[in-house]
Design a protein around this nucleic acid. Sequence first.
DNA 1: CTGAAAGCGCTTACAG
DNA 2: CTGAAAGCGCTTACAG
Lengths: 349, 349
Amino acid sequence: MKPSMATIADVAREAGVSKATVSSVFSKKRPISAEVTERVYAVAKRLGYYPNHIAVSLSLKKTMIIGLQMSVTNAGEWPAFNAEMVSGVIQVCAESGYRVLLDTLPENSDRTTMTMDPVDGVILLNPAQEDKRLDRFRQMNIPAVVIGRPNPSSTPACYVDNNNEEMMFRLGLSLLAQGHRQVLFLNAAANMTVAQDRYEGLRAAYRSQGLDFPITHHFHYDWHKHPTADEYGYQTIADTAGLLPYTVVITDQMHIAIGVMRAARELGISIPEQLSLVALGDDAILAQEVSPSLTAVDLQPRQLGAEAARMLLDLIQRAGEPRHRLVDTAFVVRESCSLPNPNSGGKKG
Amino acid sequence: MKPSMATIADVAREAGVSKATVSSVFSKKRPISAEVTERVYAVAKRLGYYPNHIAVSLSLKKTMIIGLQMSVTNAGEWPAFNAEMVSGVIQVCAESGYRVLLDTLPENSDRTTMTMDPVDGVILLNPAQEDKRLDRFRQMNIPAVVIGRPNPSSTPACYVDNNNEEMMFRLGLSLLAQGHRQVLFLNAAANMTVAQDRYEGLRAAYRSQGLDFPITHHFHYDWHKHPTADEYGYQTIADTAGLLPYTVVITDQMHIAIGVMRAARELGISIPEQLSLVALGDDAILAQEVSPSLTAVDLQPRQLGAEAARMLLDLIQRAGEPRHRLVDTAFVVRESCSLPNPNSGGKKG
DNA sequence: CTGAAAGCGCTTACAG
DNA sequence: CTGAAAGCGCTTACAG
């Protein structure tokens, strides 16, 4: 980027050819004689010339870069889930020669600061209240896909998500089949669409058995009340044990479940004998090492990222109408909660 | 990026001013009358105009993007350590208005495929055999800092690293002070500089007590022999228990330690009574949940990333001679191994 | 306070 | 097979 960098003009001059020829030698977009090719390569090497990616992008109107928009919160803690997801995105992009630009800039309404990003497309994480960004990308004519279900209020968009509702429906059904009647659900934050979908699925399972899911057994993660997920799990159990009847608790994350286990230990509640426990989101190493080992639902974060990337790349090549895709989840039964045939049947609707 | 995007020329025409004026309105680099400013903003909004980041970059010769080069392996598994490190990089960059471009392209010697990246500087991970990339960036005149100690054979470079040698020296001293004489060291892969530094530190600790560290007790991770870190730990213990005398094992990663614990469990070796265990690299949640809880060394990956970013940003603004910086580690004593005052004193040299 | 024009480093019809 | 010139969308002296 320094003035000292050799440009295509330098190479052209030194090699005694035109810029167009040098360009062609590197891009191979039109045939150049072996002799000239040879000479150009030699000069380029001597001068340490590398085509300037920015100039190429400006000319070609494509950058081979896709943007990954994550909320600042994500940047702050980067749980394993996000890392896996990002990894899936990177992998698929790399296979097609695309790079990934991480973007954590906070939602900024100051028009003067926002430029048209140097990206061919964009993936949005955490579609909580991101409608604005979505609209902006649409306005910029930049293909976008969100991971997670976007708010229905926002304009239609491409997205990939877990089959959250079905997953919870099946989980609920399995639990009811096991004889459980009182489920405590420590859900994600209330403003997340994923929280709504899962709650709906659980209620549907209850309804299908002619039961009502009691609102008293439904909690939302509140960042203000509990600094960490672990605390959320711990406190909620500490606050409700003995007061609220439940025989199984479902937690939105494994770390919440860790908190639940800690509380249970302190209260002398044995898992799974007196209380069953299942986590939505699976960290296999952690789940296997805690005792009892943790039954969990694998959300396949890597798949989510990979599918999103695939969809975006497809969108970039041949745009089309909004589409979406659901990534299956898998129940991983361990000691903390037994489940009958959780991965088969039970399809809803 | 589509032809439909409004450009600065469109705005200028519609607003009846020059492109220079529109440019100035957005960049605020020279004063423009309130009236004109108003009009330009209005037109820009109506047309959905956003300055094109690529064009700006080409003109300004800076992109406000820094590249993060990671080996493909990293992209594949993204352990918590890397996620934390990347997170540190992102955070510092974001504070200064920089974005991060992830690059996982495999080391490719095909000259035709490599362009001068659209970045103002670059951070390299895993400095195992990356000399080539370093040289390339130097040739391109792109500031670079590596995380980890670069090979001494390569040209001098800026880097940030843990104080690995000192850390191992202190750890070794603490262990010897505890009465341990036989330490089993499950080190990282042999080609990593970090592995060499740690081994040196441990040997120095032994030497300082007039002892020799026996080569029989030093193992290197070999990806071909053990598919996972866990397996590496498990197998090595399974293979050596009873044959090799040792009272404490140091593992390069927590996951290796998990494997060691599993082997110990199966072999009826109780930790820490019969065998002490300490891991280099701390995943607090995991370390606390296993039993016994795991004594570990916090490598402060987030700090590593943050320091690297700070150094790079500094380098971008005012270049200078190669510099480096060591990030302190912290001993976190839990149940698997007791250590006397590991975080104080014992400075080497 | 504002504009015309050259320049950033490439690519691509168009012409030969 | 190769070149001259215009263009990608901005910024910035220079001139007023």
